[in-house]
Nucleic acid binder design. Structure first.
Lengths: 232, 232
DNA sequence: CGTGGGATTGACGGGCATCAACTTTCGTGG
DNA sequence: CCACGAAAGTTGATGCCCGTCAATCCCACG
């Protein structure tokens, strides 16, 4: 790993407050590696051997069921994933793959656990990280139980639009099948859903979704703080 | 709080390894209280003011949607709940209520966070606890995406039977509406599902489910390690 | 023995997955 | 730069799962 990369990594929020020796112990055996799009990094059911941190790029957590992939969550930089499996020293529950060329930091799981056992700051940050992950999955679960697929699509668009609040359009950063799997539906239904939302204030042009009337869309989607607001 | 209760509490796995002063700081402001069945302890959307530990009894996490309650998870002693909200100092995402008379330990959230910031052993245990909670919710999510409602019922029965492996029957510890809400279906559908499972090795007599042919049931339910095994 | 709440059964319909055919887009090589 | 083929996306037809409404049944309990 190059020294300047190492310096940048050391300033990640993930490591803030750690003692220098512990941070060195953590990073000395870590790998920083770049992967092209479409590479499966983690296969569900295998033992957790590394903690992964997405430095830049795009990735998805998914699960394979009877041959089709169901999206669990999308990963944007900078975020750790499969932390829970590493900490509890168990099998990965899900698979992970890159959706774009991505740089990833890989830290050997035994090392993570060792430092976790010794460094209070690191333990606290990991706990917070997992609290966040837990709440995310809970929100996803609630979204599934409470909403129809059109509503999920509408709320996904709104959430995506909130991520970059300046522009009134959303660009789907991958193919529609992948999007459908994350919304919890099929390619075909997603297509129909988007057509249907044309009456609710949006226009679709290829991978670009233009939001013409956000109030109308919100009226339809009825976003709910305890499901859609990523900050609560 | 009575001294003998306090002694017992101090030996909970949740507190193991903590320094005595920190443990005292945690428990001196805690309350041990008994509640009858049917009491709502936590309303979703309100700030996390206490960390709860179910000492004995039975409780459920649920979420209210358009007037009907959807079960998120069942809580058996001894388990903490809504830890994530306390640690991240945010709103409760779900509601919680007792299903039987229950004794609960309530620890003020600011105190939990203060000790969490100081005691490595406590921080580690909370992190592990949340890893476990995260994985549980992930399994629930996968179960929803991957299976039909009959299959969920069948697997619930199998899971319940595994909890007390000696006897070949399961007793539903609450009314069917509640069970249906945890399986993710309606009372009516649950009724049909149970009737349907009569051909797959079980008999239903009121709240008692007798498993006559567990292999047949397993063949139908196809339990999967990464969804149903609570220990992985 | 009558009353009421939980549970069952039936009828119906909507949401959505599935299969299939068609169209569009896009990348590759001639 | 165009042409072709494959992949992605759309549209239509069909049927199943399951939620909803309503009627009935079954007990428990006063």
């Amino acid at each position: 790993m190059r020294p300047e990369d190492l310096m940048k990594l050391k300033h990640l929020p993930l490591f803030s407050g750690m003692t220098a020796p512990n941070l060195d112990a953590l990073l000395e055996s870590a790998l920083l590696h770049q992967f092209p799009a479409g590479v499966t990094l983690i296969h569900e059911g295998t033992p957790a051997d590394f903690l992964y941190v997405l430095i830049d790029g795009l990735a998805e957590i998914y699960t394979d069921h009877d041959g089709t992939a169901w999206g669990i969550s999308l990963l944007h930089p900078v975020s750790t994933f499969i932390l829970a499996a590493v900490i509890s020293n168990q099998l990965y529950l899900n698979s992970v793959r890159t959706l774009a060329t991505s740089r990833l930091l890989l830290i050997p799981a035994p090392r993570v656990r060792a430092v976790f056992d010794q460094d209070l700051a690191f333990a606290r940050i990991l706990a917070r990280e997992m609290a966040f992950a837990y709440r995310s999955s809970m929100k996803k679960l609630k979204g599934y139980m409470a909403r129809s697929s059109v509503e999920r699509v509408a709320n996904w668009i709104l959430a995506e639009a909130r991520r970059s609040p300046l522009q009134a359009n959303v660009v789907i950063p991958f193919d529609r099948g992948t999007l459908a799997s994350h919304i919890g539906t099929t390619r075909e239904s997603l297509s129909r859903n988007l057509a249907q939302l044309t009456d609710q204030g949006i226009r679709v042009r290829g991978r670009e979704i233009v939001i013409d009337d956000i109030e109308k869309l919100e009226l339809f989607a009825r976003p709910y703080r305890l499901i859609d607001d990523p900050s609560t």
